[in-house]
Every structure is written in structure tokens, then in C-alpha cells.
């Protein structure tokens, strides 16, 4: 589903990671660990063309991550960060933001579809009337996941998402992301998250190593 083939990334003349080879199969849950600044987030962003690679290749399905394919690749993937940015006035506007873009116009979900998705993530539909700025970190993350479900994303890149979660959010996020058939490539230091992933890798001195 996602494959790294001898990937190297340099930034400002410094090699951040080198010779990274890794295949994440469809439905698999893989987690990366490593010290701050070790290049984990950079590697995750490279999957969606957020960081240029200096050697090797990254593929999503059969598509290489190159300018010609980047739009199709981005359609498949959701990226969730520790503190997802909410740019609109209300939670409803933020949830439905993608449907204001040309690519999804006319494909707005019905009220019943929205309610079903919110229910799956243990979110009260009343949350949609709340100001985005008043939402907790966990609520924001669940809304971002809800948005990705409405967009029918199959691959999730999750960057340290558990650190801002309260207990209720944690349950909902864990069961959705880690017990579903979605492909998840994540970064985490949370032992509970790591324990529930199928494979664990560490990045140290720019090298990727699988933990047994």
C-alpha cells in the first residue's frame, strides 16, 4: 500500500534519513518511534509530497510519489497531526470544509450520514454548533477523522495524535483507527498505541530499524 524504497531525505545540507526501505501493507498498522528531530514527521510528510526526497522512491499503491500523481495520491490519504488546525468559525463549517472545494462540490453528505459518522466517533451532533476555537484537542482530532471518513479516505498518517487525547477520545480514536481495515502509518511514543500496532520501527541516526 505504502512502500519506501531506499529513501533518503536531506535538509539544509544535512542528511536526515537514509536508505529507508519499508512496506506497509493494506490494512496494516505501523508505528515509527525515534527522538525529536530524528526525521519521523519528515518521512510521514514525504508520503504526501510535503517534503522532497533526495534519493530512492516512495509509492502509494502502484503510484510513485511524483508531481504527476500527487493529486491522486492526496485523495487517498488523511493526515492527522497532534493539534489539527481548525480555520473556520464553527465545527460544522470545519467538518464540511472539503465540500466547499471544487473537487467535492455537489457531494455533500446527508445529515444522516454525518450523524452516523459522529456517532461512530462518540461525538454528540450538538458539537457541530460549537465554535471551533472552543473544542478540545481530542474533539478536534475526532472531527478531523470524521471528515476523513466522509471523504472515504483509506490511508491515515497520524503524527503523535494520542498526546492530546482525553480518555473518551482515546477509546474512540483507537477503536476507529486501530481496529478497522484502514491502513495506518503513525508516529507515537504512547505505549498503549504502540502495543496495538502490528509493527514497530525506530529511527536512529537516520537509519530505520524494526523492533522485534
Amino acid at each position: 500500500m505504502i512502500s519506501f524504497e531506499a529513501v533518503a531525505i536531506s535538509m539544509q545540507g544535512r542528511t536526515l534519513v537514509r536508505d529507508i526501505s519499508l512496506s506497509v501493507m493494506a490494512g496494516e498498522k505501523v508505528v515509527l518511534r525515534g527522538r525529536s528531530g530524528s526525521g519521523k514527521s519528515t518521512l510521514l510528510k514525504a508520503v504526501v509530497g510535503g517534503t522532497p526526497i533526495t534519493a530512492g522512491a516512495i509509492r502509494v499503491g502502484s503510484l510513485a510519489v511524483v508531481p504527476e500523481n500527487i493529486q491522486r495520491i492526496r485523495q487517498e490519504i488523511a493526515y492527522i497531526s497532534q493539534e489539527p488546525g481548525m480555520s473556520r468559525e464553527t465545527a460544522a463549517e470545519d467538518l464540511l470544509l472539503p465540500f466547499t472545494f471544487k473537487a467535492h462540490s455537489g457531494k455533500e453528505p446527508t445529515a444522516a450520514q454525518i450523524e452516523a459518522v459522529l456517532d461512530r466517533l462518540l461525538l454528540d451532533p450538538a458539537i457541530l454548533r460549537q465554535k471551533s476555537a472552543t473544542l478540545s484537542g481530542g474533539e478536534k482530532q475526532r472531527l478531523v477523522i470524521a471528515r476523513a471518513i466522509l471523504l472515504d479516505k483509506r490511508i491515515f498518517l497520524a503524527d503523535e495524535i494520542t498526546s492530546a487525547l482525553d480518555a473518551e477520545s482515546k477509546d474512540a480514536v483507537f477503536s476507529f483507527l486501530l481496529e478497522s481495515d484502514h491502513t495506518v502509518l503513525s508516529i507515537s511514543h504512547d505505549p498503549e498505541w504502540i502495543g496495538r500496532c502490528s509493527r514497530v520501527f525506530t529511527i536512529e541516526n537516520g537509519i530505520l530499524r524494526e523492533e522485534k
Partner: peptide
Amino acid sequence: LTYLLMGA
């Protein structure tokens, strides 16, 4: 980047 991933 999130906007681009949402199809923007």
C-alpha cells in the same frame, strides 16, 4: 497540507 489532502 491538510487542505491539499482534502482536495483543495
